[in-house]
């Protein structure tokens, strides 16, 4: 392998409240891969994702992006990464369209048509100019998920993406994730949802063996 891995974690160690969540954790993530972080509640799955994205600094060990230290390559990393956390990050006072345009504006000039297309993909076409607080929790999740269909960044970091999504939506999302990996993207996600066999997923299990 001549090229460096997209993400490389070396001997990560994280303690919370005097409790060791994980230690000696090493893994790599490359183009075309889907990595599922598994483990029981409180094993540190979300914490690991927040460490990767840089929202949490309480860890020891090495993290690199494309062979470069994560801190040094931070802007390049962020310019290529999409993070979906527990909260949808959708502003109630703004319409889905405005929300997506604001979110997209960090990467490139947002175009109305691509925003409409993304909303179409999550089944929210027709809701684009309704203030988001009128939408249900599931629909707000979908607004957040619509980001996956805007000119998507290479790397997706998804924390429980299947929460509050109906059955049809779940199938659609699984498919989207697989397609993204096939196109050469990479996905790292946590979920308690059983992924079907058709999804080629690598699993990283936290907790249990300490």
């Amino acid at each position: 392998m001549s090229q460096s891995a997209w993400i490389e974690a070396r001997n990560l160690r994280c303690e919370r409240d005097d409790r060791c969540l994980f230690h000696n954790l090493s893994f790599t993530l490359n183009s075309g891969e889907i990595l599922q972080v598994a483990g029981p509640n409180g094993a540190g799955k979300s914490t690991l994702l927040r460490i990767l994205i840089g929202l949490s600094a309480g860890y020891e060990g090495g993290l690199s992006w494309m062979g470069q230290d994560m801190r040094a390559g931070r802007y390049d990393f962020l310019a290529n990464t999409l993070y979906l956390g527990h909260q949808p990050g959708v502003k109630g006072a703004m319409t889905p369209e405005e929300n997506l345009i604001w979110w997209q504006s960090r990467f490139s000039k947002a175009e109305r048509n691509s925003v409409y297309a993304a909303l179409e993909q999550v089944g929210l076409r027709g809701y684009e100019d309704i203030p988001s607080y009128h939408l249900s929790a599931g629909q707000q999740r979908r607004v957040a998920l619509a980001r996956l269909y805007l000119q998507p960044p290479k790397l997706w970091i998804l924390d429980e993406p299947f929460t509050a999504i109906d059955k049809a939506g779940v199938t659609r999302l699984e498919q989207t994730i697989v397609e993204h990996a096939q196109r050469g993207g990479a996905v790292i996600l946590t979920t308690h949802h059983e992924l079907p066999q058709s999804v080629p997923v690598r699993t990283l299990t936290l907790g249990g063996a300490q």
Binding site: I53, L55, Y75, L78, A79, G85, G89, V90, K91
Partner: peptide
């Protein structure tokens, strides 16, 4: 509502 997180992840200084 979590938009602060997304704000902090903007790829600009």
């Amino acid at each position: 509502d979590g938009t602060l997180e997304q704000f902090l992840l903007m790829p600009q200084p």
